[in-house]
Design a protein around this nucleic acid. Structure first.
Lengths: 189, 189
DNA sequence: CGAAAAACTTGAAGTACTTCAAGAAAAGTA
DNA sequence: TACTTTTCTTGAAGTACTTCAAGTTTTTCG
């Protein structure tokens, strides 16, 4: 069974015919580890649903380092929402951390699909409510926990990431240095 | 003209009859400066549209301080989205910074309204896309700018807040101390 | 398999902030 | 108007991290 269809059906009912229509608007794409799905300064005119694998959202800082701000795994949507909505150049990069398989839909097709099947508006609204809620909680953690607490929290609640993703990306996502991460893990702090 | 209706019409067409229906689901509420619209541990079963005035979203930290994580002004929606969607207890507080006038809608009425006027799904989806996009950019600023840069950025792009809101709340929102804010402003840093 | 690249570790030195304490200024209220 | 509360300022001391540089381990891939 297609994972996007299953995901949609967790939120709204969808019959076989509708499922066919949905899929006809998407393209399946594969990227190899390290490839970029989106590069800064480009317009992010696609939205991605991750079927298989793991990606990250990151910024190139003025210091020449890379700052990871989000991760995405199976069954997550990922895009730069402002760039997607207003078709303005993005300042983010989206990169495959593993070889990945994703479903992509262009901005125009996305609008056409929603016109064709308006019931999907509800699905996307619910997905966004959840995503924005998660962003609210994320800000809370960043603001109220020390580096060490943030690491342990992630370790406890999202152990799958710690396994899958290089430590320095996790450190960056939690807003501290790779070296400090290493010290936390070895108990030298 | 009602400000909620105008706001909706910026995103989707809405005739008079539909506007009447929309408004019938909302309640107008007034709160005085410092009153709480939501208190932590409560379930946030309402969503608010700010007609007049200014509110903040904050957490009580374990250190006994208050950490502001969001602001809201005229024409913004505000709620704890996870608490609202899953009816779980919130860890946030929402407080009026000025005397305010808001439109509130309960979770049940919200669902009923969307059943009655499904075209509103699109409006809320678009509002959420924009909000989540703004959250992505906010994280970027927090991660890539120094305290001083964050202050100047806010000063340049959102001067209305600097005027309206006590400095210590701005400092907290930008994730530094009120004392440091004072030093930035006076150039002693 | 072996070589190269990527990821992780360690300690020493530095810094961008925080915390504390106290006083001054501004705003709210009777 | 004066009194109270809230907000802002200042300097001194402290700290949770960062940065740098170098070495070690692990992973990738021809």
């Amino acid at each position: 069974m297609n994972s996007l269809i299953s995901h949609i059906q967790k939120f709204i009912p969808l019959n076989n015919e509708e499922a066919e229509i949905v899929l006809s608007y998407f393209k399946i794409e594969k990227f190899k580890k390290k490839q970029l799905l989106l590069q800064e300064n480009q317009i992010c005119n696609k939205q991605y649903f991750i079927v298989n694998g793991c990606v990250r959202f990151y910024i190139n800082t003025t210091k020449g380092t890379e700052q990871t701000t989000q991760f995405g795994i199976e069954n997550w949507w990922i895009t730069d929402y402002l760039s997607f909505q207003y078709l303005t150049p993005s300042s983010f990069n989206i990169q495959a951390i593993e070889n990945i398989e994703i479903l992509s839909i262009e901005r125009n097709s996305f609008e056409a699909l929603l016109e064709r099947l308006p019931k999907l508006e509800k699905y996307f609204r619910l997905v966004l409510q959840k995503s924005f809620g998660a962003a609210q909680v994320r800000i809370k953690y960043l603001f109220t926990m020390s580096a060490e607490e943030r690491f342990h929290h992630m370790n406890d609640y999202f152990p799958e990431f710690i396994q899958r993703v290089p430590q320095y990306m996790i450190a960056s996502y939690l807003d501290f240095s790779a070296e400090f991460m290493s010290k936390i893990r070895s108990g030298k702090v």
